[in-house]
Simulated assay, not measured.
Amino acid sequence: MQVNINGIDTRYVLSNEGGGPWLTFIHQLGGDLSVWDQLAGYFRDDFTVLRYDVRGHGATGVPDKPFSVADLSRDLATLLDALGAPHTHLVGMSMGGMVAQQFALDHPSRIDTLTLADTSAGTAPENRAVWDQRAATARREGMASLVPATLSRWLTPDFQAAHPEAVEQIREVLQHTSPAGYALACEALRDFNVQERLNEIRLPTLTVAGRHDTGTPPAATEFIAKSIEGAQYELLDAAHLAPIEQSHRFAALLETFLETRV
């Protein structure tokens, strides 16, 4: 399905077989809504599951000017308005976790629970250049040049060897991401920082990190958990895409977390 959100044609998939509470998933940089296929299938009997392609990704349009994570938060609010969802359980991974944090600060009354996976609350000054380099590489060389190093950060060698079909789907999405959209998102993440505001979040929060995540070390996610009162922190045997690599364990954690708050 497509809907125009803040001037950008946006793809979304709604699975509401169960007709239950809303549960929204936000994907990683260089991903799209398909990364949540398995988890959406797991929860759709009990929840109204929403997935969408963030601007510049998948089948959603690429803007012609820079945007911020705050803009991505506004996109989500507008999408929920368009679909008639007053509030939702919210799950964000990596870039999606940054959008979710911003949304929690911008629209706390619209979140039932907050789940943040493999994410950080901001980029340290010494790491800003990394985002600039990735953006420049995408624009200059295209996405193919970024694929090998990205997959090595995202998934452990054991998972890649055991699940080649899943890895190939993730690779295809990454390789076909718009270089311009990817670069603009890199620059948005470079400028994102809500570290000093995390204590404003007063929501039931689950945080999940991958033990082998080199791109966003577990300490970054643990910092978020320590900064949000009452937040739960879980460490999984995975790299950066922990909810995908450890999908059964993540689903069980999320199900238990949601059951206590629905």
Results as ranks from 00 to 15, higher is better:
Tyr52His: 01
Tyr52Asp: 01
Tyr52Lys: 00
Tyr52Cys: 00
Asp53Pro: 03
Asp53Met: 09
Val54Ser: 07
Val54Thr: 11
Val54Ile: 14
Val54Met: 06
Arg55Leu: 07
Arg55Phe: 03
Arg55Gly: 05
Arg55Ile: 06
Gly56Arg: 08
Gly56Ala: 13
His57Ser: 01
His57Gln: 00
Gly58Met: 08
Gly58Lys: 11
Gly58Asn: 07
Gly58Ser: 14
Ala59Lys: 08
Ala59Asn: 13
Ala59Gln: 12
Thr60Leu: 02
Gly61Phe: 02
Gly61Leu: 04
Gly61Asp: 11
Gly61Ile: 02
Gly61Tyr: 09
Gly61Val: 03
Val62Gly: 12
Val62Asp: 06
Val62Asn: 05
Val62Phe: 04
Asp64Glu: 14
Asp64Trp: 12
Lys65Cys: 05
Pro66Asp: 11
Pro66Glu: 10
Pro66Ser: 08
Pro66Gln: 12
Phe67Pro: 00
Phe67Arg: 00
Phe67Asp: 02
Phe67Ser: 03
Ser68Cys: 03
Val69His: 05
Val69Gly: 00
Ala70Ser: 11
Ala70Arg: 08
Ala70Ile: 05
Ala70Leu: 09
Asp71Gly: 04
Asp71His: 09
Leu72Asn: 09
Leu72Val: 05
Ser73Cys: 04
Ser73Arg: 11
Ser73Pro: 08
Ser73Met: 00
Ser73Glu: 02
Ser73Ala: 13
Arg74His: 11
Arg74Ala: 15
Asp75Ser: 04
Asp75Val: 04
Asp75Gly: 06
Leu76Met: 10
Leu76Phe: 06
Leu76His: 10
Leu76Glu: 04
Ala77Arg: 10
Ala77Ser: 12
Ala77Tyr: 04
Thr78Gly: 02
Thr78Tyr: 10
Thr78Cys: 14
Thr78Ser: 13
Thr78Phe: 04
Leu80Ile: 08
Asp81Phe: 06
Asp81Ser: 14
Asp81Cys: 12
Asp81Ile: 14
Asp81Met: 13
Ala82Gln: 14
Ala82Cys: 12
Ala82Val: 09
Leu83Arg: 10
Leu83Cys: 14
Leu83Phe: 09
Leu83Thr: 02
Leu83Ser: 07
Gly84Cys: 02
Gly84Tyr: 03
Ala85Gly: 15
Ala85Lys: 14
Ala85Gln: 14
Ala85Ser: 13
Ala85Phe: 15
Pro86His: 15
His87Phe: 11
His87Gln: 15
Thr88Met: 07
Thr88Cys: 12
His89Lys: 12
His89Tyr: 11
His89Trp: 04
His89Asp: 07
His89Thr: 09
Leu90Ser: 05
Leu90Ile: 03
Leu90Gly: 00
Leu90Phe: 07
Leu90Met: 01
Val91Asp: 00
Val91Arg: 02
